[in-house]
Amino acid sequence: MPAIVPETWGRRETMQSPVGDITFLSAKSGWRFRTMFDKEPETIDWISAFEPNTLLIDIGANVGIFSVYAAILGHRVIAIEPSPANYFQLCGNILLNDLSDSVVPLSNPLSDYTCFLPINFQSLDFGASMASIKEPLDFRNKQFNPSGQISQLALTIDDILVHYIKDRKNFKKIAIKIDVDGHEFTILKGSFKCLSDGAIDTILVELPENEEQFVMEVNLFLKKFNFELVGIFQNPKFVTAETCDVKNYIFRHIGT
């Protein structure tokens, strides 16, 4: 049965969805759940097409909209979100939907090697995005004034998955979603072992299309591990001047 989440954790809402009722903590971040089937339909479709018992690594999970959706569909999820406010609501949303057996939340940031790193948060509010490792630079390499900085233990994808690769009784496939405001390539480089082993089947990564060198590096890196680009997506209804070239790139391992 769902956990008894105290009222002091903040207001909550329940909405009807194609997969049943979803309850969520709604202070400041409720719009993310209310628009979850409209803002990124390609991400919903990507998750909906997973084979049964897929393990989703949701990197940059925010308050957990896609983690919750995948878990409701019956998949295992590791939801990674270093923002203190978002991590709090992520855990609350897992508990409110009785998904503790399906979703493992982690507050560690990810990098290409294991170390302690300072994380700069542009905002510490619920549902906010934009954080950076080491220097307070956004995904355009423009400096911002952080609302706060916290040093955290950064892990790699290989660190996390090494405990799951040994025993795949509870899942058959691995999918990775990365939405981390400019640190996507750094994080991918921390999955070298898993990519080499062929353990990962599909990857969805958000990239700024106009940053051509950055996008090319990601494409070439994944191509070395036999991944092919199967689609580039953007919903024009939710585009802003700042995000006009930010799109979701979906890759699939050849032969899976």
Rank of each mutant, 00 (worst) to 15 (best):
I176Y: 03
Q149L: 03
P6V: 01
K193R: 15
L207E: 11
P18L: 08
I200S: 07
N145K: 14
A128G: 10
Y164P: 04
I80G: 01
E184R: 08
R32D: 03
L95N: 05
I59H: 04
D45H: 07
L55Y: 04
N170C: 00
D201E: 15
L207Y: 12
D45V: 06
S123N: 07
K193V: 06
K169E: 11
I232M: 09
I59R: 03
L161D: 03
S17Q: 07
T243V: 06
I119F: 00
G190Q: 07
P118R: 06
L153M: 15
D179H: 11
L96G: 02
M1N: 11
I203L: 12
V230A: 09
D197T: 10
I174S: 00
M130H: 10
D201A: 15
I44H: 01
S100I: 05
G74I: 12
D181H: 12
G64Y: 13
E184Y: 08
D197H: 11
K224T: 08
N97H: 08
V5T: 05
M15E: 11
A49I: 02
V246Q: 06
V162S: 15
K193P: 03
L124T: 11
A49D: 13
L188Q: 05
E212K: 15
I47K: 01
A49K: 05
N97P: 06
I232Q: 08
L90K: 08
S129W: 13
D125K: 14
D201H: 15
H163M: 08
F139W: 12
I65R: 12
G64H: 12
Q234E: 12
D181N: 09
N62T: 13
P6F: 02
N248V: 03
L153Q: 13
R252D: 01
F171W: 07
N62L: 13
R11S: 13
L96W: 06
N108A: 06
L55Q: 05
F88E: 13
K134A: 02
S67R: 04
A154M: 12
R11Q: 11
P105G: 01
V230K: 15
F227E: 00
T240R: 11
L73V: 08
A3V: 04
L229D: 04
G255T: 11
V162A: 13
P208E: 14
A154G: 12
R252S: 12
A71D: 13
G64V: 13
S29P: 03
E209H: 15
L188E: 03
T243C: 05
W31K: 03
M36K: 07
R76Y: 09
I72Q: 11
R11A: 13
F121I: 06
E81N: 06
